[in-house]
Amino acid sequence: MIGLTHYLVLTGILFSIGLVGVMRRTNLLMLFFSTEILLNAVNIGFVAVSKFYGDLSGQMFAFFIIAVAASEVAVGLGLLILWYKRNGSVDLNSLQMMRG
């Protein structure tokens, strides 16, 4: 029988894949994809907890996370396009103005 633990382990694995993406990718667009993975992994966790504890709060959280993800993509893509128009590249290594 599939229990909460299964879902949580899956969440963990997906989250870690997202982390690998975050660390590995230097293309900004790909970085956005990785963050989407992170968010989705967490969503699965929330919904699973919601199901197994009989509490709707988890689903509510997942819902709001989706809303936040949507706005993030909108703004993020806008910025990305602006940056691409300026520099012709969305490589992270071209973004080093904050060097201390």
Binding site: Q96, M98, R99, G100
Partner: peptide
């Protein structure tokens, strides 16, 4: 520690992790 502040987003993300 100044080297941490390389301005590279990748590095920053790694530090975040």
């Amino acid at each position: 520690a100044r080297k941490i502040q390389s301005g590279n987003l990748s590095d920053m993300l790694r530090w975040m992790i």
